[in-house]
Design a protein around this nucleic acid. Structure first.
Lengths: 310, 310
DNA sequence: TTTCGTGTTGCGAACGATTGCAACTCCCTC
DNA sequence: GAGGGAGTTGCAATCGTTCGCAACACGAAA
C-alpha cells in the first residue's frame, strides 16, 4: 500500500540508521509477545533437552521464542512459574508437568491461556496433548519378554498421579493377558518419582519380596539404571539373571553396561508437534476446535539388557 | 512514601482485581527487560543442560529470565541469533560459542552490550569469561598416565580456533615436559569439531599412523566415546591396550563401558558464576571495572578407562 | 465545474507501566 | 497571620510500536 520506490528508500535508510524493530514495544501494542512458555521438570534430566530442541526449532520457523522454566517436580513452584510466564506475556504454554488431576493447569485454561501438554496429560480432555503411545510401548516390551520365555515379569510404573503411570499399568495388564501370563499382586509397583534412586529402591524391595522375578519393565531409562545398580548390589547379573527394559531411549543408552533395551519414541518430534498444535490454537482462538490428542508411535530398541530367563 | 494504611488497601484491591504487573510495559518504559540471552551450540549436547540450569537458577534469584538460543556450530547463524536477542531487548548476553578470533562477539561489545563468555574465551581480553582450568585439567590427566607408566601419549585437542584447543595443547606440552616425556610430531592432533564422530576419525588415523600409542587424552567425553568405538573396531581393548581420558565428566560417564576416566569441573557452577559476573556488569555499567576471567578448578575422576600400558 | 472513487500520506491515540513535577494539605515556626 | 517545610496526591509525558481515521491529491465520470 506504498509505492515500490518509497519502500526501497525506507528499507535503505533503515539499514543505514541500523534500525531494529523493538520487539517489546511491538508486544505492548499488539498484545502478543511471540513468546511461548515451556514448563518442564528439569532441563538437566536427559529426557528434556531433545524435546526442548524440537520445540525451539519449530518455534524459530515462525519467529517465536521460548521461555523455559523448571519445577523440579515441586508442585508449589508450579503456580509461581505460571505467574511469572503470564507476567512476561507469553502467548501460550507448553507444559510437560501435567498430573492426572492438575488444578493449576485447569486454572490456566480457565483464564483463557492456550496450553498444550507434552509427554503427560491430565484428565481434562479439553487440553490438547502430545504424548508417546505408552500402552503400545509397554506392550512391545512385554511381548519381547514373553517371546524370550519370561513368565514372572514385574512392572515398575511411574506414579499413579501421572497419566504415564496409569497408561503403563493398563498397557501392561492387557499385554500380559494377551500373552496368557499371570500378574500376581506385588509385581506391579508404582513409583513415587521417576528417578534413578527410586528405581533402585523399588528394584531392591521387589527382588526381596519376589526372588523369582526374571524380568523388569522399568518406568523409564533412569529407573532401569537404578535396577542395574540394585541388581549388581544383590549379586545378580543383567541380563543373565534378570532382564531389564527401559522407556525413552535416552541419549547414550546404547553405551551403558549392558546396552539398554528400551522403548523409543521421537522426543524431538514430540516437542515440534506440540508447537504445531499450540500454534494452531493461537491462530484460531475463536474457532474452538476440539482439543487434539496426538500419540507418538513407539518402537522397541533391542539391545543387551534383555535375554531369556536363566 | 505512602501511608501504611493506603498501602494495605492498594495491595488488597490488587489482589481482588487479580492485578499482574505487565512486564512488557515495564520493560518498554525502563529500557530493561530483566532478560539475558544465552547462546550455546546445542542444548541436546550433554555438556550444556547443567550449565543452563546453573544460569537459570542464578537468574531466578534476581528475577531475571533467560532466552536460550542455539548456533549448532554454524557461524553464519551467530549474527542472526544476536540480532534476534537484541530485538527482544536482552539486558546482557552469556555466550558459550566464543572463537579465538570472534568478530561478531567484538561487534556486540562495541555496541555496548554486556557480554560474558562461558566455557571458552576469545582473544579479546576485554570480555569477561568463566572457563574451566583447561591446562590444569590436562596436566592432571597426563600425570595419571605418566604414573601408570605410559610413554607414548597422544592428545586429541579441540580446534585451534577455540581457546580450549590452544590451552589444552599448551597444558599438554608443559605436562609432558615436566614428566620428561617426548611429544613426537603427529601425536598432537587438532580436531575440526568436538564431536563423537570426529573423535572416532582422529583415533582411527592416529592408531593407524602410530600403532605404538598406549594412551589418548581426548578433547572431551564425546570424543573419548569416539575413541571407544574406533578402538573396538580395530580390535583393541580399552583400557587393556589403550587408555583413554575424557574431559567434562558428562552425565552418566560412570556408566559407560568401560567407565570413563575424565577431567571434571562444575558445569552448574560455571553457569551460575557467569551470571554473577554479568549481573555485576549490568549494575555497574558506568564503573568500567576490568573484565573478570574466572577459571574453575578441575579434578581428575579416576574410573575404568585408564590402566597401565600393556 | 462538480462529484466521486482510489490511492497515499500524516497524524494522534493507545498499549501499561515509570517517573518527575506541580499542586495541595497540614502543621510548625517566627 | 504569613511563610516555609514535609508529606502526600494527581497529572502528564514517555518508552517504540501499531492502527484507524482524517486529509489530501489526482483522475475519471457526470
Amino acid at each position: 500500500m506504498v509505492s515500490a520506490d518509497t519502500l526501497q528508500r525506507v528499507l535503505q535508510s533503515a539499514r543505514e540508521l541500523n534500525y531494529r524493530t523493538n520487539a517489546i514495544a511491538r508486544s505492548l501494542r499488539t498484545q502478543r509477545s511471540q513468546t511461548v512458555g515451556v514448563v518442564i521438570p528439569d532441563i538437566a534430566n536427559p529426557l528434556f533437552p531433545r524435546i526442548v530442541r524440537g520445540i525451539d526449532d519449530a518455534l524459530e520457523d515462525v519467529r517465536y521464542a521460548s521461555l523455559v522454566t523448571y519445577t523440579d517436580g515441586r508442585d508449589d513452584r508450579l503456580l509461581e512459574r505460571f505467574e511469572l510466564l503470564r507476567q512476561r506475556g507469553v502467548d501460550g504454554l507448553l507444559v510437560a508437568t501435567a498430573r492426572h488431576n492438575d488444578p493449576p493447569l485447569d486454572m490456566l485454561v480457565a483464564a483463557g491461556i492456550p496450553v498444550v501438554q507434552i509427554n503427560r496429560r491430565s484428565q481434562n480432555k479439553a487440553i490438547p496433548s502430545v504424548t508417546p503411545d505408552d500402552r503400545g510401548g509397554i506392550r512391545s516390551a512385554v511381548e519381547l519378554l514373553a517371546e524370550l520365555g519370561h513368565e514372572r515379569i514385574a512392572l515398575m510404573a511411574p506414579p499413579q498421579t501421572h497419566s504415564t503411570g496409569r497408561a503403563r499399568i493398563a498397557g501392561f495388564r492387557s499385554a500380559m493377558r494377551r500373552a496368557r501370563l499371570e500378574v500376581p499382586a506385588g509385581l506391579v509397583q508404582s513409583a513415587r518419582a521417576v528417578t534413578l534412586e527410586e528405581g533402585r529402591r523399588i528394584c531392591t524391595s521387589l527382588l526381596d519380596a519376589h526372588p523369582d522375578v526374571t524380568a523388569i519393565v522399568a518406568g523409564n531409562d533412569l529407573m532401569a539404571l537404578g535396577c542395574y545398580d540394585s541388581l549388581r548390589a544383590a549379586g545378580r547379573r543383567c541380563p543373565d539373571d534378570v532382564s531389564v527394559i527401559g522407556f525413552n531411549d535416552m541419549p547414550f543408552a546404547e553405551r551403558f553396561d549392558p546396552p539398554l533395551t528400551t522403548v523409543r519414541f521421537d522426543h524431538y518430534e514430540m516437542g515440534a508437534a506440540a508447537v504445531g498444535v499450540l500454534l494452531r490454537r493461537l491462530r484460531a482462538s475463536e474457532t474452538e476446535s476440539p482439543a487434539a490428542h496426538l500419540e507418538l508411535e513407539t518402537r522397541l530398541v533391542v539391545r543387551g539388557s534383555a535375554a531369556p530367563p536363566p
